[in-house]
Design a protein around this nucleic acid. Structure first.
Lengths: 140, 140
DNA sequence: TATTGTTATACTCTATAACTATA
DNA sequence: TATAGTTATAGAGTATAACAATA
């Protein structure tokens, strides 16, 4: 009998890994007083600069109601700017403050260092091939 | 200035991919009347044969109270066997029935076919390298 | 006294619906 | 009438604590 395909379910590999990566992130986020959603919001604003709350929610796959408390908190702490769009006063324009950008960069750096615990298991060649394949797969 | 490391957060790649993989699994599971946890339980029993409920819960990273309703359902439907351990009558010994094994194999095959939507983006070489690296990473 | 499995309860997270202010 | 944002409510999912049976 032919040996079965050596792979298990892809989901069975990916999902638990994702859970462990999030667990590893948790202490870093806690040190900075950020929830996971807050960090996702900061990252989305840093990378793409989603202008409105609706666009931001869409881009991170969250319900529009879910991010409101997150934005309230980030604004109170001076990490984001949130002001009415002069052209459409229903909408709120979002952007990172310098402090928000610094915080995001610091958290990202610490998280990436932590992730070396996993990526360090790979040789440099494996690592770049792996990340390239992963990027290719996740691209819509 | 040197170009930044080309990778983003690993978690930012892995976690959303996991979510999409689970979304793709959902219709398959629904066709078989299984929840995600039920499928996880069937797979764990098929792969390793976790003898007791506590061992099973531990192996799949679930709370022991969370799998009870799942086991009740799987037992009612004749997919698992669950009987008191004669050596320790507090414990329940779990195993797949032939029907359970067939169901698990059918679901897994359908899920893996669905996952080719993602893996198909890779060349055969990339694919095997990617899966090997992923397996290496996820190994404790 | 400790452990396996179970049940009941409380808590967190998330989505749904209803509201306001603008357009 | 439709849309951006907000609030309040309800539902699902999860963990915590208390319990019964056995060791």
């Amino acid at each position: 009998m032919a040996r079965r395909d050596a792979r298990d379910d892809l989901a069975a590999l990916i999902v638990p890994l994702g859970r462990r990566l999030l667990d590893a992130e948790a202490p870093v986020l806690e040190r900075h007083g950020l929830t996971m959603w807050a960090y996702v919001v900061l990252s989305a604003l840093a990378d793409a600069g989603a202008p409105t709350q609706a666009a931001l929610a869409e881009s991170i796959g969250a319900d529009k109601t879910r991010i409101i408390a997150v934005l309230d908190d980030l604004q109170d702490r001076g990490l984001i700017d949130r002001r009415a769009d002069p052209d459409d006063r229903r909408a709120r324009l979002l952007s990172l403050t310098p402090a928000g950008r610094r915080t995001r960069a610091a958290v990202q750096a610490q998280i990436q260092r932590g992730e070396d615990r996993w990526l360090g298991k790979l040789s440099p060649t494996e690592r770049s091939t792996f990340l390239a394949a992963l990027t290719k797969i996740t691209a819509t």
